[in-house]
Structure formats: structure tokens, C-alpha cells
Nucleic acid binder design. Structure first.
Lengths: 112, 112
DNA sequence: ACCATATACTTTGTATAACAAAGTATATGG
DNA sequence: CCATATACTTTGTTATACAAAGTATATGGT
């Protein structure tokens, strides 16, 4: 139980925070990485972590993509936004997470 | 992202709640299962989940075991208690979890 | 006494996720 | 011109929760 415990703690929760950020603003992958790193130091992720998550969310129909070319002859970027289904999945999953977080807090903090 | 998301949310956190419960009271495995199921519905686990965790925690020196025979000719039970090292690991890991939980809450609840 | 159920522990195999590490390609600033 | 940043992708590794099954003893009800 070293620092790789952090890797375990992140499992599953990255999905919901990514969906949340994408529900507030359409973003492309690389942008999401920096946004996540800015928003919470403990949720830092690398590209090799984010992109597979995005592909999975897309396969599940929770996000939609769109290639956009900023300027002509510039390299297009792949923009992600959340679908209706994605909002529902995120809401449901977050509710589950809150229940677990509450139980953990109860056990760790008090009521022995 | 179905109900198996719950399985992901549990990753890592079971360690810390198990260590916490064992720090409050020495227990044997089967007892821990029912205690956990009683304490937080969302943290329900089966024996096949708990025992491997206990073996791992023991390998890491975070818990110690002791076989105790309740009555003569009764089947002995394997009691677990936390070591000093276990307390430290739990405290550290819980602190990490709180940091992540805080970041998640910030992203999910507010400050857009 | 019998037997279904509960207790208690163990093992095997599976699915999934985060990550490291590397690669590809374009854009940009000094 | 070229090192660095941007942007996306892929492969292989490791760790964990879980289902499912098995073993063995204990116990309560009829």
C-alpha cells in the first residue's frame, strides 16, 4: 500500500469528473488533461490514461465527438461533448460514489 | 458504466476501512464481512473479496494474525489486528483519499 | 440421530482500469 | 532551422474486486 494506492482510488472516478467537465464545456482531449491537472492536483492524469477513457465513453454512447479545424490548414482537434445518456450515467454514478464516500467517512471519522 | 462502476469505486478504499475497523477491534475474517456489511451497505463485500485483502495486508505487515480456539474442541478462528505500520499506512492512505474526494467534490458540486 | 443451514476459511479464474512508455505527426517560437 | 509544445494513439503491465466454487466444522430443528 504505497503511492500506487492513489492509482486505485482513481478507478472509476475519472469517468465521472471527465463527464462533468465535458458537460460544462466542450473540450478536446489534450485540453482536458491540462484542465484536470489544473482543477485537482490529486486527479492528475497523463494522456495515455485519458484517451482510452474517452474512447470507452464514446463506445458507451456517453460522449460524442467532432473534429474541428481551427484555422484552415491547421491540424483539426477532436472535440468531446456529453450526451444525454452521459449526463444520466454521470448523475447515477456520482450518486453511487457519494454513498460510498459517506460510508467511508462514517467508518473513518466516527461512530465506532 | 453500469453497476459495476461500484466495483471500481471500491478499489483501494476497502483496505483503509478494513484497517480502521481492525484498529478499533480485533476481529476474525467472517466477522469482518458481516461488520462491513452492517456498517455501510455500499461497502458490502463477499468472503472471496475480503480474505485475499487480508492475506495481502498481512504480507505487507499491516496486520497480524492469531489463531484462537474459543472452546476446547471448537474450530479455531483466525483473528486479525492492525500493526503500528498498519496504522501509519492507513492514516497516510486515508489522507490521500480525502484529497481526491475533495477534488472530486469540488469538480462535481461547484466552482465551474 | 439426521440433515439442512450457518459459520469460517480458501482458491481459481475473469474483467477492468490506471499507468508507463513509447510512437506518430503537426505547430510554433527563438 | 530545430528544439519544444501540442495533439492523438497504441502496447504491455500491474493491481484489484468479484463470481464461483470448494473444504470443513458447528448447530438447530424435527
Amino acid at each position: 500500500m504505497n503511492e500506487n494506492i492513489i492509482k486505485q482510488f482513481k478507478k472509476g472516478v475519472l469517468d465521472i469528473v471527465i463527464l462533468k467537465l465535458l458537460s460544462q464545456q466542450e473540450m478536446y482531449g489534450y485540453e482536458l488533461v491540462s484542465e484536470l491537472n489544473r482543477r485537482g492536483e490529486s486527479l492528475n492524469i497523463k494522456e495515455g490514461t485519458l484517451y482510452p477513457i474517452l474512447y470507452r465513453l464514446e463506445d458507451e454512447g456517453l460522449v460524442e465527438t467532432r473534429w474541428e479545424q481551427a484555422a484552415s490548414r491547421s491540424k483539426p482537434k477532436k472535440y468531446y461533448k456529453v450526451t444525454e445518456k452521459g449526463i444520466e450515467a454521470m448523475t447515477e454514478a456520482y450518486s453511487q460514489w457519494k454513498a460510498i464516500a459517506r460510508d467511508i467517512t462514517n467508518i473513518m471519522e466516527g461512530t465506532p
